[in-house]
Write a protein that binds this DNA or RNA. Structure first.
Length: 514
RNA sequence: GAGGGCGUAGCUCAGUCGGUAGAAGAGCAGCGGCCUUUUAAGCCGUGGGUCCUGGGUUCGAGUCCCAGCGCCCUCACCA
């Protein structure tokens, strides 16, 4: 009976026995530890001294992550979302503290604290002999008891699986993990600011869709009971955002959670966030400008640098970014023009690919991926794709085999994708029919969406459209090697499947009591 | 889906060639003490294990073999 949870529960009982509620209440007018540090910078705080009674006091709240008990003096480290701050508890100094109801708090609470407890505190600033900024407490209360032992104080939580499954522990135990998600929030905020400034309107479109489209991917299938209807989780918001443009929302965007029933990898998660935006009366050149501002601007304003390390490499986000043609990159890195289909097929065969049943464009695309993508380390716009694989893109008026599309590559990874949008309903119908035909039996291929065509028949303005993989941008800007490091709660298999099976708790058994 | 790697105390990790008598170790955390300027505080004492699970080989398995579960990586898939 000596496990750590019971030890902590014992302390819970001791606190209650002394009239202290271990699950505290409202604790307001709190400064962040960052605010306290900033305030300290402006004051003369000699080493080894505490500000005298009557000096400004500060209130802070957060989680206890270090605790050094030196008899009738205790040093603790408090962590909030802005950082850490040392607290000092002197038995003499805190002796008189009482709470609003007249119950004594302070020293006896300090003696019953455990690592991980959430506390509120108030005190006066000072510096220790070694110059460490310290808040010397005049008040201390416990706001929430931590019943489970937190990870080791020095190494934190390193087990990858536990970090993903118990992200709440990872977040308070590993500041660098917390910082990734704070950076993610700032990056998204920066993007919203840029779009707001340019007159874009944020909307929400359906995740549950009767017909899925806007990308080539396998969807998750689900079912609505009352409507007795099969639905798909969206793989893309594209067709709905275009309907918004038909309706006169000229500049529209959505931070769209998309779900794709595909493989999982360090760059792919079943659900991910895509920023998708459309600008009426623009084209894909406008999308390049805005992409630079969204991502390059985030590097500058959020990370504070245009040169950011990713693994061994340093990536340079200095704008403007090169805008290169797909055909030129192909020629440069593959070694012959992409129009030379015979050479392309021969090359494919030499790589051991079974290309016989592939379309010409697929062969060219595969060679491009194999030979070119890895070379694109610094942000690069790859422009003007072969048309056959772009059913939603407008063709170059001078060359129908070229689609007015670009993809943004960074560190060999596709981060953005943009088109000069197709707005001729007849051509759109034709393209969708053709790709539906080619993809017969392939549930990833585009399917006909009659209502979408009908929307186009009312007239959609010519437009530029852009999609940016937010998770991947956050990976690059925060140096995260896996997409799961920038997604708070990445999908993991349920544990105890075996145990459930052994107990006979299969799906059938769970459906209802006998 | 294929291949490779990993799984030992709450956490971070040792554990050699399969064997060092009995009790599988350390640090942190815990528990009992001491300490009013610590910095991963220190000192003394002390409790804690489904070695992922289930089989097998063996005189003997944390270690070897097989199956399963979970995670990571590579490839495939993801235009």
């Amino acid at each position: 009976m000596s496990d750590q949870i019971s030890d902590r529960k014992n302390k819970l009982d001791k606190l209650r026995a002394q009239g202290v509620d271990p699950y505290g209440w409202r604790f307001t007018e709190v400064s962040s530890t960052a605010d306290v540090r900033a305030a300290a910078e402006t004051q003369n705080l000699p080493d080894g001294e505490i500000q005298p009674e009557g000096a400004t006091t500060y209130r802070v709240a957060g989680r206890l992550i270090l605790h050094r008990d030196i008899g009738s003096l205790i040093f603790m480290t408090l962590r909030d979302s802005s950082g850490d701050l040392q607290l000092g508890v002197s038995k003499k100094m805190i002796a008189g503290a009482v709470d609003a109801e007249g119950g004594a708090v302070g020293w006896k609470v300090a003696k019953l604290l455990d690592l991980g407890d959430v506390i509120g505190a108030e005190g006066r600033l000072g510096r220790t002999k070694t110059g460490e900024l310290t808040l010397w407490l005049t008040d201390l209360r416990i706001l929430s008891k931590c019943l489970r032992p937190p990870p080791e104080k020095f190494h934190g939580l390193t087990d990858v699986e536990t970090r993903y499954r118990k992200r709440y522990v990872d977040l308070f135990a590993n500041p660098e993990s917390r910082d990734v998600f704070l950076a993610r929030a700032k990056i998204v905020r920066h993007m919203r600011d840029v779009l707001h400034e340019r007159g874009f309107i944020e909307v929400d479109t359906p995740v549950l869709q009767p017909i899925y489209g806007g990308a080539a991917a396998r969807p998750f299938v689900t079912q609505h009971n009352t409507l007795d209807m099969q639905l798909y989780m969206r793989i893309s918001p594209e067709l709905y955002l275009k309907r918004c443009m038909v309706g006169g929302i000229e500049r529209v965007y959505e931070f769209a959670r998309c779900l794709r029933n595909e493989g999982i990898s360090p760059r792919h998660n079943p659900e991910f966030t895509m920023l998708e935006l459309y600008q009426s009366y623009g084209d894909y050149h406008d999308m390049m400008d805005i992409t630079e501002e969204l991502i390059g601007g985030a590097a500058e304003h959020v990370i504070g640098s245009t040169k950011i390390k990713f693994g061994e490499r340093e990536i340079d986000y200095t704008r403007p970014w090169p805008r290169l043609k797909y055909a030129d990159l192909f020629q440069q890195h593959v070694g012959f023009p992409m129009s030379d289909i015979a050479a392309a097929r021969e090359k494919a065969r030499s790589l051991g690919w079974e290309e016989a049943k592939w379309d010409d464009a697929v062969v060219v695309g595969a060679l491009f991926e194999h030979h070119v993508e890895d070379k694109l380390v610094n942000p690069t716009f790859v422009c003007d794709y072969p048309a056959p694989l772009c059913p939603l893109t407008r063709r170059d008026p001078n060359d129908a085999s070229i689609a007015l599309r670009f993809e943004l590559y960074v560190n060999g990874m596709e981060v953005g994708n943009a088109y000069t949008e197709l707005n001729d309903p007849a051509v759109q119908r034709e393209n969708l029919e053709r790709s539906a035909l080619r993809g017969e039996g392939d549930e990833t291929m585009a399917v006909m969406d009659e209502d979408f065509i009908e929307a186009l028949e009312y007239g959609m303005p010519p437009a530029g459209g852009l999609g940016i993989g937010i998770d991947r941008v956050v990976m690059l800007l925060t140096g995260s090697q896996s997409i799961r490091d920038v997604i708070l709660f990445p999908l993991q298999r349920v544990i105890n499947v075996q145990a459930r099976d052994e107990l006979g708790l299969t799906d059938d058994a769970k459906a209802g009591p006998e």
